[in-house]
């Protein structure tokens, strides 16, 4: 099949750009640990309240792990537990969350903490809270009439 010389150059250029993009995100994901939230743990959605760690929502200091704190959220239409939490600046935190009913989102606005909560699955994301401020948590997957009222708050301070 005949292809114009300039089109070949263009496609090689385009392909090279795509390979650079893929390499950048591939290295970032698999060598620097920036994989998107993909936890494989399951949970019975009807027994969330009795199952650890969801029986104690909120921020907990942990020892002997790669992270300093675990921040546990339980979502249900149309609220998160806890409704407000304070995280010390610079803390490395594993956010752990699940839903008791329909699919919800858990997005900490203005950060990379953005994950789907699906019944039966635990969602996790580990990050270091290295910027001070008040962060709004919003449900970003439609969950019913009160979807836009579903929120929580994280305060990051020294």
């Amino acid at each position: 099949m005949h292809m114009h010389k300039l089109e070949k150059i263009w496609l090689i250029f385009g392909l090279a750009a795509l390979i650079v993009f893929l390499s950048t995100i591939g290295v970032s994901a698999f060598y620097l640990g920036n994989k998107p939230p993909s936890c494989l743990t399951t949970v019975d959605p009807e027994k969330v309240d009795q199952t650890a760690p969801f029986n104690k929502p909120g921020l907990h200091k942990v020892e002997g792990k790669d992270w300093d704190y675990e921040l546990v959220f339980v979502a249900q239409a149309f609220a998160y537990t806890p409704t407000q939490v304070t995280v010390p600046l610079g803390a490395k935190v594993k956010v752990i969350a699940t839903t008791k009913d329909v699919v919800h989102g858990l997005e900490v606005a203005g950060t990379n903490i953005n994950m789907m909560l699906e019944p039966g699955y635990v969602s996790e994301y580990t990050t270091t809270f290295d910027k001070e401020g008040e962060y709004l948590i919003v449900c970003n997957e439609y969950c019913g009439t009160g979807h836009h009222l579903m929120s929580s708050k994280i305060e990051v301070k020294k």
Partner: peptide, 26 residues
């Protein structure tokens, strides 16, 4: 060629913009 290269650079610039946003945020 000039037009598609403009397009290519537009893609690269916007992609880098969001990439750096990702890197900057926690």
């Amino acid at each position: 060629m000039a037009s598609v290269m403009f397009l290519g650079f537009f893609i690269i610039v916007t992609w880098l913009g969001v990439y750096f946003l990702f890197v900057d945020r926690f």
